[in-house]
Write a protein that binds this DNA or RNA. Structure first.
Lengths: 145, 145
DNA sequence: TCTTAAATTGTAATGTTTATAAATAGTCTA
DNA sequence: TAGACTATTTATAAACATTACAATTTAAGA
């Protein structure tokens, strides 16, 4: 795991005056380690062993805190529940419409889109998000069988 | 209103073997006319006068049908409920993070992104979505007061 | 160690969306 | 046009994710 990322995250929490609780430590650690994009429930279930008494509300509360501090991004796809992604470098996501697999896709940020949007709409643009949808190689292979 | 769009939509429903009911007609008409991006509940409330007995389930059912036929797009932003958009030309959305206003932003489709994603990930890409976030002029003006 | 405000917990409540079964109504055929 | 078949609507209940709340616990600074 990336101890550096975790420490940096903890520091930035301290700087914002957010207390470091064992639960927060564990949730952050899980978000950094898991190469997936877990839902709140995924996190809750994954930490059940370590924190048998942890409440679902704690997971949600802290995910909100982390989001407000800018440590994580909330991804809302079509499905019922949000997914959470630890913020590292700028990247987009490619999503398999068949099995739901999410693959990181590094691509230079589309700054020119934001600039044009500023001109056309008069908005003060802060950021954008993009997702790319398709079928992953595994699913394509299975289909061909 | 665009009678043409409505008729084309009704035709493409007929072609797929979907029955034209008064409720479907009204929901489609509302989606085409409303320049906003309504939620299922918005639609339900808007048609209450015309169809006092219409069920919420009918709205949801038909929005799913329309989506499957490709007439509308379902947009899942951060908020609690999905929004629905009648598909016309390719455009993206600029969203005000303060008041929630959604403005259409016409921009040539980012085909090269899809191509690169194909190469890098091996996915069979079908489409992508992008949203741009910021603060609308009205909200900026109010803040400055 | 003590104090205090913040965080956690457990539970109830909210709100959106789906499932289900009975009633209704389009559309096709004769 | 009438009748039959099946899709659709309705009403309601259920599922599900997320939030609100009050009581308890705890992190962190003095």
């Amino acid at each position: 795991m990336s101890q550096t990322q975790l420490n940096e995250a903890l520091d930035s929490l301290k700087d914002t005056g957010v207390r470091i609780t064992p639960q927060r430590h564990a949730i952050l650690e899980y978000l950094i380690d898991s190469m997936s994009h877990p839902t709140a429930d995924d996190i809750y279930k994954a930490l059940e062993g370590k924190f048998p008494n942890m409440s679902v509300a704690t997971v949600y509360n802290n995910l909100r805190v982390f989001r407000e501090v800018g440590l994580i991004k909330e991804l809302t796809y079509g499905d019922s529940s949000s997914r959470f992604d630890f913020v590292t470098t700028n990247h987009y996501h490619v999503i398999c419409q068949n099995c739901g697999k999410i693959v990181d896709f590094h691509y230079p940020g589309l700054d020119e889109v934001e600039h044009l949007a500023t001109h056309v709409t008069g908005f003060k643009i802060s950021h954008h998000r993009m997702e790319i949808y398709g079928e992953c190689p595994d699913c394509s292979a299975k289909e061909a069988h």
